[in-house]
Design a binder for these strands. Structure first.
Lengths: 200, 200, 200, 200
DNA sequence: GAGTAACCGAGACGGTACGTCATGTCTTTGA
DNA sequence: TCAAAGACATGACGTACCGTCTCGGTTACTC
């Protein structure tokens, strides 16, 4: 029987050191060039301690990002000035700006590559990271729906995809420039699609 | 001077064998588990012959896909029955069906992972693979535009992203089910966004 | 600090397997055609395990011979019948016979080539292999010296070289036939050189 | 039929360039690290040109030394002052001095390693290089023999070995210091062995 | 408190693949 | 037709990591 490790005895000190070392290394040399060996060395930890608690390099990297976002949790709520167009444009422009910063962008890219190749991580990602964010965005859309700015029968999941997927795709595949104007155009077009039908 | 190999002397036989072996292996064991060593062995080729002509595993994999699409080039034109909605739904449903087939899907996924991590490949991808396809799709949209089904001032690049990016994102991140109904909903919503303004 | 391996943790099992495999391979295909890769494969060992503990193929081969002679240590003493001439002729004839046997001769030749090219191995060779044998031979000469058969002021190191170097050279460079008669002639001549001065 | 190259058409220019490049490389990086590839590159010659005319790296190296000695042939005769002891000591001390010079010593060592491993080269060596030198030395011994300084029935081949083999062995195996005193002692001892029997 | 079970750092192990180098053969091009 | 140039299949090199295992040495839970 392949004995299971006992989480109660887990060394928090080592866990943190591993997660920190992982984040540092991913930033320094890029995801592909990070090795478990290097993480262990940097963290001052035995390799077995990593293998005991994580199934793969991807899982460690993922957790290291998860820990990061856990820390900064709190208010995910989007601004709500009552003007859905203005609010969305502000948020989208902010996203564009974030993606433009390599310090932020590079690790996210690594994370995405990992997720693409591993359905298990994808599920975790959706649940732990993307899910809450999407929920916050949908909340803002719902608010606009109640205010009559968006069609009452609109599928908000789909709406979200319409809004974000083009941005995500451009960034991930580097298929076009990410500018504030692009963000605005995306919001305009999406809102047009979501606009309530004209009343007769 | 780091002597360059002379393309004139390149062995076409070896080139084909490498490309074929690569495609087979990616299909069989998945991108991550393909090694240059295995490609060389399968192709009956020296490793050096691969290193001489490609800079990385990614480059070989990419070229192997490129060669595939080069072969099947020709008619990229989308159907044009005059009904843009019906035509797009047919195309989108076909895309959904393709993505559902692992034999087709897995290698494309591998290719995408490669592209995400390598800007050079991304550029090649856009130019050689995605570009021509996008051009064909835009041609159909342009036709609809001339027929008055789409706003004359619509940005067709953006339109294309609105249409395809959500589908691509769902598939790549496995963030939701890909169904014919989803395809239809995407077309409906996108066309709503592109609809010409009402005439007074 | 180029981390040193810890000898305490060394696997005796692997060490023996490597030494055995090396000896077999050198016998089978000859020194020049033995590769570290082949030794590792034959010994069922990772290449790194060889590189961890030895600096070169030569060092492994050397150690494999050393281990052999360590095992068969014990009585290195030469026969001492009181007749130095007869005793030396017996020993030299035996040496000639050994050199005639390829099974014995080939590995020694390989070992010698290795030693010639590597001062470090040469030093080890002198200390671990040649040294003890030479000491035994000198002991016999000393005994003859005390018996008055050899000049009391003779340099025994030099005497040993006079006796063995010609034989070694003929064998190593294949510069002449190695016969029992040759051995005898060598002993005769050397003893003549070492003979005590006539008393008046 | 594996076509034979036609020596008549051989390019003397290439031959010389190869031999020169070989000698340079052996001096610079040592025999073991010289590659046919490097020789060809240095000589500005195709690899095939080397393979066409030589069977192995050893053969090229050997020929490069042979060519050297061919050039400097001429007077191999040893000094003959009538005093065999003084003459031999002078010659042996000169040999000791030569062996002490790495510029001279290293290539000879490489040559010897090559000869040891290849009986074919050994034969060539004896015939072309060692033979003539030994003949010259034997001539001097014969002269001493006629002068009554050496026993008339002495085997001069054996005498030569007694004189040179110890020196050669010490040098090749680095088994002891090579000093002028050592050379003298060797001559003394050898001459004692060769001395004519006392007259009654 | 003593025992004992688990984690922990460390790192050797059997392996796989890397990317480089040299081998010896073969083909193309120019003299 | 030979030589230069160099691509080719082959295979070893020495290195980097993989994931497993074993070693002492702490913890921290049980009796």
């Amino acid at each position: 029987m392949p004995k299971q490790p006992d989480p109660a005895r887990r060394s928090e000190r080592s866990r943190q050191a591993i997660l920190d070392a992982t984040r540092e290394l991913v930033s320094e040399v890029g995801y592909a060039k990070v090795s478990i060996e290097a993480i262990a060395a940097r963290a001052g930890v035995g390799k077995q301690t990593i293998y005991r608690w994580w199934r793969s390099k991807g899982a460690v990297v993922f957790d290291s990002f998860l820990a990061l976002s856990d820390a900064g949790e709190g208010d995910l709520a989007l601004p709500d000035t009552g003007d859905i167009e203005a609010d969305l444009k502000a948020v989208m422009r902010a996203t564009v700006a974030e993606f433009a910063d390599p310090a932020f962008s590079a690790p996210i890219r690594a994370l995405n590559m990992e997720i693409i190749g591993d359905p298990g991580l994808a599920a975790q990602y959706l649940e732990k990271l993307a899910g809450p964010l999407d929920e916050a965005k949908k909340a803002r859309l719902r608010s606009a729906q109640q205010a009559g700015q968006i069609a009452p029968d609109a599928d908000l999941d789909l709406a979200l995809e319409l809004l974000y997927a083009p941005l995500y795709q451009r960034w991930l595949l580097r298929s076009g420039p990410l500018t504030p104007e692009y963000a605005d155009a995306l919001v305009d077009l999406t809102l047009k699609a979501l606009r309530p039908s004209a009343r007769p």
